[in-house]
């Protein structure tokens, strides 16, 4: 058990190292010479001597691994520089935008469960019947529809034609409805499929027959007895789909003008605002890694088979 958690922790550390390396290398490869930028900002002439001075001041004359080390130490202290456009501290900027993205992610998860749980449940209970086929068709549609298109159609229908919901922007709960529905619907299919197969497997077990024999009502047998083991893979999928959720949030935030991290990152990319891009990548990468780790650990705690197993091998 502890060995397992430790191993996952090691994987998390490995992921963070890769994340920082990739970010560092890409930053080094980015077009534009920082030395020239500093000289230009200070309106100093571009001479060899001046360049040398600035290079030394920025630490760019040191070998790359030393540069990486000092950069990593800086980043670990949440010092990610300042935004090129607003001169705001990047960490502060990220923290300002984070709540909007987190609330969008939670409400999307909620929308996802609202779609997936009933559909998966119905599909399993009426397996092979028309309800099952309908649920499968909906899942197929969700897996095939581009999220930005669905979002635009929803805006067109509910904001422009019917005028029920605000078109763009953030702030209120009403603003949150369309983006969450969009993101929840396109992410639901995997969950529907997983829940259906998990429930079908659960329903074929001996203990379900025993429960039925004891006269427990059918909906209770399905929704509680068979649901419990079927929820385990869902928990691990929640962690795995964190990356997809982040990706989806960039698209939906940009589409709906939701003031979160994703729309901030898109602005930063168009403005070539490197410190902000760097901060976004490091923060979301960390978030994804932590979510994966938490779902792994959560799975360990939930699954009695893993929990009680001794001499676990990875």
């Amino acid at each position: 058990m502890f060995k397992h958690v430790g191993l996952r922790l090691l994987q998390l550390v490995l992921m963070l190292i890769v994340l920082s390396l990739v970010t560092f290398v890409l930053m080094k490869m980015a077009p534009g010479d920082p030395v020239l930028a500093v000289l230009k900002a200070d309106e100093r002439p571009v001479t060899e001597a001046n360049q040398q001075v600035v290079r030394q001041a920025l630490g760019l004359d040191k070998p790359l691994y030393q540069q990486y080390g000092s950069w990593l130490l800086q980043v670990a202290r949440f010092d990610m520089g300042r935004s090129y456009t607003t001169n705001q501290d990047v960490w502060q900027l990220l923290m300002e935008r984070l709540p909007a993205t987190v609330s969008l992610m939670f409400s999307s998860m909620l929308a996802l469960l609202v779609f997936a749980v009933p559909l998966g449940l119905l599909a399993a209970v009426y397996c092979g019947r028309s309800v099952d086929h309908a649920s499968r068709m909906i899942a197929l549609l969700g897996a095939s529809i581009p999220s930005f298109w669905l979002g635009l159609l929803l805006i067109y229908l509910f904001s422009y034609r019917l005028n029920w919901l605000p078109m763009m922007g953030g702030g209120s709960l009403y603003h949150l409805i369309l983006p969450s529905v969009t993101l929840g619907f396109v992410m639901a299919p995997e969950y529907i499929r997983l829940l259906r197969s998990g429930l079908l497997e659960g329903l074929s077990q001996e203990y379900i027959r025993a429960a039925r024999a004891r006269g427990i009502r059918e909906w209770r047998v399905t929704a509680i007895y068979a649901m419990r083991p079927a929820l385990l893979p869902i928990v691990s999928l929640l962690g795995v789909s964190m990356g997809a959720l982040i990706a989806g949030s960039v698209v939906t935030e940009t589409l709906f003008g939701w003031p979160g991290l994703g729309s901030m990152a898109m602005e930063a990319i168009t403005q070539r605002n490197y410190p902000v891009i760097q901060g976004y990548i490091l923060l979301t990468g960390l978030g994804i890694g932590l979510a994966n780790w938490l779902s792994d650990v959560g799975l360990l705690l939930l699954d009695p088979k893993i929990r009680h197993e001794k001499g676990m091998s990875a």
Binding site: M15, V18, L26, I246, I277
Partner: peptide, 22 residues
């Protein structure tokens, strides 16, 4: 594979587009 797969593809795509240009 572990090392390369540590990052979700979308995040990597954003990082590449962000630093090297779209």
């Amino acid at each position: 594979a572990d090392a390369a797969g540590a990052l979700p593809e979308f995040l990597l795509a954003i990082a590449v587009a962000g630093f090297l240009g779209p």
